[in-house]
Every structure is written in C-alpha cells, then in structure tokens.
C-alpha cells in the first residue's frame, strides 16, 4: 500500500506541468481563433449595433490582449472558476458538472464491459492457443475491432430499438416518468445498454486480442513449463499463472485507452441523444462557445489523469515489481 501511495504522489506531481501545457495550449488554440462567442451570440439574435458588441466584449473581458486574458483565465482557474458560458447563460463549471455523471456512467460501464468480458474471452482463447475457440474468437474480435462505434450504435438501434422495440432509441432515462429508486436505476440501465455496447465492443475486441497475445507469449516462457512440472491443474496454471501475468499489459492499455474512449463517447452521446459531457462539447461547437470548449477539454484531461492514476494504483497492487528498484515505472 505504501508503494502505491508513493507512486501516486510522484505521478500527481509529474502531471502538473502536463496539465498546465494542456490549459495554456487549449486557451491559445481556441482564443486565437477568429470569431468569438459574442459574434455568435450577436448573429443568433439577428445582428446588433457596434456599441452593444463593444460592451458585451468588455463585460466578458474579450477586449483585452491575449496575454492579459490568459493570465486572467489562469488566476480564475486557480479559484476553480472556469468562466461563464454565453450559450447556457450559466457558469461553465456548473454546466459541466451537471453533464459529467452521465458520461462517467457511460464510460465506466463501457470500460467495465470491455475489460471484463474482453479479458475473460481472451483467457478462453489463450488457454489453448490454436484451438477452435481460439480461432473463432481471434477472427471475430478482429472483425469487431474494425467496426466504427458510431455506426455500430446506429445499426444496434435500428435492430433493437426501431425494429424489435426491445430498448429505447435515445436519452438517458424516460422523461417525466416519475420513476424513483430502483425502478429509475433500471430505467437508466435500459437506456444505457445500446450506447455502452456500441462504445465498448471495439475496446472489448482490443482487450481480447491483447489478453490472447499476452497469454500466447506467457505460454512460450520457461515459467509456464515450470508450472506444469509442479503438477498443477491446467485450470490453476491458466488462471493463476498465465492469465495473471498476461493481465499486466492489459491494465496499462486500460489507462492508454481512457482518452480515446472519452473521445468516442462524444459521438455515441450524439447517436443516442444522451445529455452528457460529449454532447455538451458538440453544443459548445455549435454555439461557438470557446470558453466552454476550453473548460471541457481541461476537465477531460483531468478525467484522463484521474483514470491513469487509478490504473497506476491497480498496476502497483497487481505487480509486486513496481516501485521496488525503480526499474519499472
């Protein structure tokens, strides 16, 4: 446990400069762009006189120099203030925090599905390399890996929601149903099945393939033969030794895929009309709300850092070699 804490502190400290680069970089990229939220707003209300535009700019601090605005942004960020969203007419942090839980549910479930089922099927495939089940799973996972998630989402909703009517086509829960407690949770779960499937299947295929490859590699090593020489049951060799060792790179991959999955949820939320974080990004784009977009990118970077910290802890708990001599990080 102490090892994990030590690692955690080191990782936290090293992620500070990276986060700072993200903040400054995003700010410069989006604030330097021509056209701002005031332009978009004025356009949306059908034009306005220059005096109004001027005063709006001044009230949002948009009339100052880029450097001054960056400094202003950083200081307010230090007070956990992400600024004001023109599109929503509310503080950006409030808007983001309101949408975040839906995305966390979507991403968390998709991660759990893909990692859990992917590693189990990977163990099934890797238990006997070259067997029938191995071949079927390998080919199947490669095909699945090639399917774009948003298109899979559309196909799934055509089949299961439009044609068969088993599941709802969109949203995160039935609106104004008055459902409470367990019934409400069940309702949300029903709404999440298709989007989680669409988002998770591609990663399921990825984890399956990695697990299988890792196990194939472990089988070729000396220690696999050594476990057989100990006379252990095949079940114990596969589960406790081979799979246990093959699991380690999978955990690393979990952290690496967090950012990509968050990006994927943007499109999935659009397909299933889930009012989440990704859909918010799309609304920010539509409203040319640069401050909101910056906030979204910063929060998503934080989310990715957080997932990676959790992954690091899990890795340290799974691999006794981590942090022992500094050889493995």
């Amino acid at each position: 446990m102490q090892r994990a804490f030590h690692l955690l502190r080191r990782r936290l400290i090293s992620s500070i400069p990276v986060l700072l680069i993200v903040i400054v970089g995003t700010f410069l990229l989006l604030e330097a762009a021509p056209g701002d939220a005031v332009d978009a707003y004025v356009l949306s209300i059908g034009g306005g006189d220059p005096a109004l535009v001027q005063s709006l700019r001044a009230s949002y601090g948009l009339d100052q120099s880029l450097g001054a605005r960056l400094w202003l942004y950083l200081t307010s960020l230090a007070r956990l203030d992400l600024g004001w969203s023109v599109t929503f007419g509310r503080p950006i942090l409030d808007v983001i925090l309101e949408r975040l839980p839906n995305t966390i549910w979507l991403m968390g479930s998709a991660l759990a599905l893909s990692f859990g089922l992917g590693s189990i099927l990977g163990i099934v495939a890797g238990a006997r390399p070259g067997s029938m089940s191995d071949r079927v799973l390998s080919v199947g996972s490669l095909a699945l890996y090639a399917v774009p998630s948003f298109w899979l989402g559309l196909v799934l909703s055509i089949v299961f929601a439009v044609q068969l009517r088993w599941l709802p086509t969109s949203g995160i829960e039935t609106i104004a149903s008055g459902k409470q407690g367990f019934e409400r949770a069940l309702d949300i779960a029903r709404h999440l099945i298709l989007p989680v499937g669409a988002l998770g299947f591609i990663y399921l295929a990825l984890f399956l393939r990695m697990m299988r490859a890792g196990m194939a590699q472990a089988w070729r090593q000396d220690f696999a033969l050594a476990q057989r020489a100990k006379g252990l049951s095949r079940r114990r060799i596969v589960l406790r030794h081979i799979a246990r060792n093959a699991l380690l790179p999978l955990v690393t991959m979990l952290g690496l895929q967090a950012a990509s999955m968050l990006g994927g949820s943007v499109v999935i939320e659009s397909v299933f009309a889930i009012p989440g974080f990704g859909r918010l990004a799309q609304e920010a784009v539509a409203g040319r709300d640069a401050p909101l977009l910056i906030g979204i990118i910063i929060v998503s970077a934080l989310l990715v850092i957080l997932v990676n910290l959790l992954v690091d802890i899990a890795y340290a708990l799974l691999d006794p070699r981590v942090g022992a001599s500094g050889a493995t990080t």
């Binding site: 090593q221 000396d222 220690f223 033969l225 050594a226 476990q227 406790r240 030794h241 246990r244 060792n245 380690l248 799974l318 691999d319 006794p320 070699r321």
Partner: peptide, 8 residues
C-alpha cells in the same frame, strides 16, 4: 525465469 514473477 521459472518462478512466477507476480506471485509470492
């Protein structure tokens, strides 16, 4: 190489 690196 013959001992499992991740088990006690």
């Amino acid at each position: 190489a013959s001992l499992d690196p991740v088990l006690s």
